[in-house]
Design a protein around this nucleic acid. Structure first.
Lengths: 142, 142
DNA sequence: ATACAAGCTACAGTGGGTAGAGGTTCAAGA
DNA sequence: TCTTGAACCTCTACCCACTGTAGCTTGTAT
């Protein structure tokens, strides 16, 4: 039975994060010692590893919750798993598109500025006047 | 003199966001009517437009604060403005790189799964076992 | 005079954690 | 067995950039 610090090291997770996952119901409440310290088994290790790997691939905790539930019913069709993964892929692709648009805007802006003084700086001018605002008014994921 | 709702519409900002910008000192405290309602002038409109354009390009509020300060001293060299813009460009490029890595991982994962049942699902398997974890343990910007 | 849209303040919540205060427990060495 | 000290515990607040709500007040048009 592993204490929380060991679980943390093995999975590359912070101790607080593990407790946070427990708090939001992503990890089950583990057993405790008489003194009240958490003790984990291999199943917990696997589950946490699953969560961390999924996070590394950009899945939200809600999506991970869904994947974990699905993986608990091994006889079901995996179409739903596929759907979650595709959704994630689409989200990543959308973020890339958005960031690539930003990148070219920034590059253009920077390349146009050859001024010395702030008063003539093209960068600031673009930021002030920026006519062709980017399509939407959403956040940029900054 | 414009009330806050008009300013909001003209700049594509929510009313609460304008009050938030004021609260954190990004917008100056405007004049008020006798009854206590905010009234804005053209300078405020310009400043808010600058902020929104910069946000659309992904600049953080801290970076915007810096840009606004710089643009208040028109005789200074614009090298610092350039530096802020370049820093932003590098951040965007880094995020793109990261997301492109995620995208290919996701694509590979999805393409490998041709199972019917959750029990044989390659996607879940990859999430469980994912050996070659991506380089770092940072957040993904999700 | 009245109706009602639009304004006001203050506080809570989002996602995904992270940091710290202040106290307790576990395990190893003497 | 005692003592040390690292690791654990709970609870709370903080990060970013907003967004939403409750409950009230003000401005404006008719």
């Amino acid at each position: 039975m592993l204490p929380i610090g060991t679980l943390a090291k093995r999975t590359g997770t912070k101790v607080q994060t593990i407790r946070y996952y427990e708090q939001i119901g992503l990890l089950p409440e583990p057993g405790r010692t008489e003194g009240g310290q958490r003790r984990y088994g291999d199943k917990d290790l696997d589950r946490l590893a699953f969560i961390r790997h999924s996070r590394q691939l950009g899945f939200s905790l809600e999506a991970i919750r869904e994947l974990l539930e699905l993986s608990d019913s091994p006889e079901r069709s995996c179409a739903q798993v596929d759907a979650v993964a595709h959704r994630q892929l689409r989200e990543v692709e959308a973020r890339i598109d958005r960031l690539e648009a930003l990148r070219s805007e920034l590059r253009r802006m920077i390349s146009e500025c050859s001024a010395d003084r702030v008063a003539d700086c093209r960068i600031l001018e673009v930021l002030r006047d920026h006519e062709e605002c980017l399509a939407d008014h959403h956040a940029t994921g900054a």
